[in-house]
Design a protein around this nucleic acid. Structure first.
Length: 598
RNA sequence: GCGGGCGUAGCUCAGCGGUAGAGUACUAGUCUUCCAAACUAGUUGUCACGGGUUCGAAUCCCGUCGCCCGCUCCA
């Protein structure tokens, strides 16, 4: 019941998005293409505003973050180093009976007796199948159970009273060709690559394969050295990037929430390893589990920085109209975390399609993940490229010399052990891993380390959907004739609203009103997105702007022209959310509006 | 990738073998006054696409594409 209502809401949102020009299906005239969406005039403005706000708050207004804009296609070696070539291209098998899908490398090998059948015939209808099928007899089960599974398989092929044909048995050892749950045969492993690929150069050969990036983050790591050197930033500092990314999702779903081409806003914030911070400041700051930890401090370790970025990001969402109640949080459990990650907090939004959990609460779906990724990424690129990714930290070297030998030994040992853990997990042979980790620990004593990273990574398109869902408001009223009417108002925060102000002459057929309205429109359009409209009754124009989410509308009437001399050069300013109107001089308009929409 | 439902005007939908429809939207016009007013005139369709059955297909059948739901997948 509740779900049907939520679907209805999503349908209304999708419908409004098309009707008003927020979002269209890509390639619609050719029947569309699954997982791709276009932003119409209003959607493009909305998206631009969101990206602009992110860019401004994350880079321009901060001393410690700089920007980057990298290419979508990069050396394929980047994706080997990042692990995407391995984790994004698993061979998969499907159970021929239940259609359940397995990762071929995760099927437990089984031994036992296999029953092969060459086909089956329906004893009632005479219908015949010559499709071969095999079943692994599960340990402790009677042979009849294997025949039973085969009969079910042929039943799914339309042979209900199956008489099995050509039965023979065979012993197998450690086979991964059968479903561990029912013994049914699996399809051959089929490659399953989540990265979109293309060829660089005109020859479509294996060695020319390149990938469209599945995330923007790796470009930041790959360019870390260049940015670090040219920006004259010192650790801690961050590199931000906004850009397109591509994933060949199995099932694009929920409108633009999961699509195959999408945009990300990512920050990689590089910090000192905790051992270095401790060497310099004596200890790493303790930080409260909840709440904003305040202005960054030099003695912050990764936990404080992680906490800080989670709270900074929540403030960003609050600043564009997503209140804390509409958001949810998911702290990844140790089982969910990637092996190199120390923590990951997802910021969720309660979308109309978000599911209820066991306790009946809506947690939400992911807008952004803030991950503490240790020094994994830069270390991977150092190992794969052979280029050193470490930085030299003058402050650390000076501080290290002043430590007691006991402290030095303690920090070295801890750094050695985390580096060793990383190297062995990455498949470096034990002996070499120990040598390398020892070298890293010696480097730390000389002020060298590979920075750790905190990664706030947000999806632009899903944020747009969150803003649209959040803004969508319907009110139904009944007029004096008893006619009910449903109005839709998109209550966007003025900062993200696609159109900031609508400008209307009260009447279209009075040239003086039109001329004055055009004059006011010209005055405003250079400062903000403004929209001029003179068609239809004034109420209709207000309603149209309500659906577009325009927060303010200005109407030029006869008083503007001086019919009441005291109102000369004043206009009606109408508020979207409550319909209230006020009178304001044209001379004050720019300042009044800019204060509210910036 | 599997299973189920759906696809008709910009939008919401009716029509379900015999001339392509309604509401709304949109465009132009009349109107001196603020929340989808009224009136007049007008525009809008490869009935998702391709094939088949039929004298005749939006309607029945098959395939493809897309959307929704459930599995599966989700750095």
């Amino acid at each position: 019941m509740a779900e049907a209502k939520e679907n209805l809401l999503m349908e209304k949102i999708v419908s409004l998005c098309k009707r008003r020009g927020f979002i269209f299906q890509s390639s619609e005239i050719y029947g569309g293409i699954n997982g791709f969406w276009d932003f119409g005039p209003l959607g493009a403005e909305l998206k631009r505003n969101v990206k602009e706000l992110w860019w401004t708050s994350m880079t321009r207004l901060r001393d410690d973050v700089v920007g980057l804009e990298a290419t979508i296609i990069m050396s394929p070696q980047i994706w080997k180093a990042s692990g995407h070539v391995d984790t994004f291209s698993d061979p998969m098998c499907d159970c021929l009976l239940t259609k359940k899908r397995f990762r071929a490398d995760q099927i437990e090998p089984q031994s036992g007796q296999v029953f092969h059948f060459s086909g089956a015939k329906d004893s009632a209808s005479g219908k015949e199948s010559i499709e071969p099928f095999s079943v692994l007899l599960l340990a402790g089960k009677p042979p009849e159970s294997a025949r039973n599974v085969a009969s079910q398989f042929y039943a799914s092929r339309g042979i209900n009273q199956a008489v099995l044909i050509g039965e023979r048995t065979e012993k197998v050892e450690n086979s991964t060709r059968f479903n561990p749950e029912n013994g049914a045969q699996l399809t051959d492993p089929r490659p399953f690559n989540l990265m979109l690929q293309t060829y660089v150069g005109p020859i479509q050969s294996e060695e020319n394969i390149a990938y469209l990036r599945p995330e923007t983050a790796q470009a930041i790591f790959a360019q870390f050295k260049n940015v670090h050197e040219t920006s004259r930033q010192k650790i801690p500092f961050g590199i931000g990037q906004i850009g397109k990314a591509f994933r060949n999702e199995v099932t694009p779903r929920n409108f633009i929430f999961r699509s195959r081409e999408f945009e990300q806003m990512e920050l990689e914030f590089f910090i000192k390893p905790d051992e270095a911070t401790e060497a310099i400041h004596g200890s790493v700051a303790n930080v409260a589990e909840i709440g904003h930890p305040g202005e960054p401090q030099p003695n912050w370790g990764w936990q404080a920085w992680h906490r800080y970025w989670v709270e900074e990001r929540v403030r960003f969402y609050e600043g564009i109209g997503l209140s804390r109640e509409t958001l949810g949080f998911h702290h990844q459990t140790p089982e969910e975390l990637a092996h190199y990650a120390r923590a990951c907090t997802d910021i969720l939004y309660k979308f109309p399609f978000s599911k209820r959990d066991e306790s009946g609460e809506v947690k939400g779906d992911e807008l952004e993940g803030i991950a503490a990724r240790s020094d994994f990424d830069l270390s991977q690129h150092e190992r794969h490229s052979g280029k050193l990714m470490g930085v030299f930290d003058e402050e650390l070297r000076t501080a290290w010399g002043k430590l007691t030998p006991e402290k030095q030994a303690d920090l070295s040992a801890r750094y050695f052990s985390t580096r060793l853990k990383y190297l062995t997990k990455s498949g470096v042979p034990q002996e070499k891993a120990e040598l390398d980790a020892k070298e890293d620990a010696e480097g730390l004593a000389k002020g060298q380390y590979i920075p750790h990273v905190i990664e706030p990574s947000a999806g632009v398109d899903r944020l747009i959907l969150a803003l649209i869902s959040n803004a969508f408001q319907e009110t139904t009223s009944t007029d004096e004739k008893g006619k009910t009417e449903t109005r839709t108002v998109m209550k966007f925060h003025p900062r993200v609203a696609p159109v900031k102000v609508g400008v209307f002459p009260l009447l279209k057929n009075k040239p003086e009103l039109v001329a004055k309205a055009r004059e006011v429109f010209q005055l405003l359009r250079g400062q903000m997105m403004a929209f001029y409209d003179d068609s239809g009754a004034i109420g209709r124009r207000y309603a149209r702007q309500d659906e577009a989410g325009t927060p303010y509308c200005i109407t030029i009437d006869f008083d503007t022209l001086g019919e009441k001399p005291e109102l000369l050069n004043t206009v009606t300013l109408r508020h979207r959310d409550d319909g209230k109107q006020e009178r304001i001089p044209i001379a004050d308009l720019q300042g009044w509006l800019l204060a509210r929409v910036k």
